[in-house]
Amino acid sequence: MVFIQFLIIAFALLVISRIVLSFKRKKISLKLFIFWLPLWLIIPATFLLPKTADYLAKILGLGRGADLATYLSILMIFYLIFRIFVRLEKIESDITAIVRGIALKDKDNRK
């Protein structure tokens, strides 16, 4: 086993244990659990069996499995950032709605 494989797998195991624990302690929802767990199973799998990624890359017309992994990761990261932005925006407007509700209701604030 190459050193980098060992490193990645150890890290993936750590992350997987965090995901499972968080789910057990109900810190993350089932939705998030189903999203993150397979992702962190796929990552060590491709590192253990680099040939599979190479094979997939060939089908898609890419040279190397590593390229495919990089492209997919970047796509995924951008998509997640977008999702986070949307969520943040929603939280911002929810906060405004709460602050507004208090301002309009609170009789002590008025003259």
């Binding site: 507004r100 208090i102 604030n109 008025r110």
Partner: peptide, 11 residues
């Protein structure tokens, strides 16, 4: 003598 509505935090 203006009527004041206060936001608890800056929005």
């Amino acid at each position: 003598n203006a009527k004041v509505y206060r936001h608890l935090i800056n929005r």
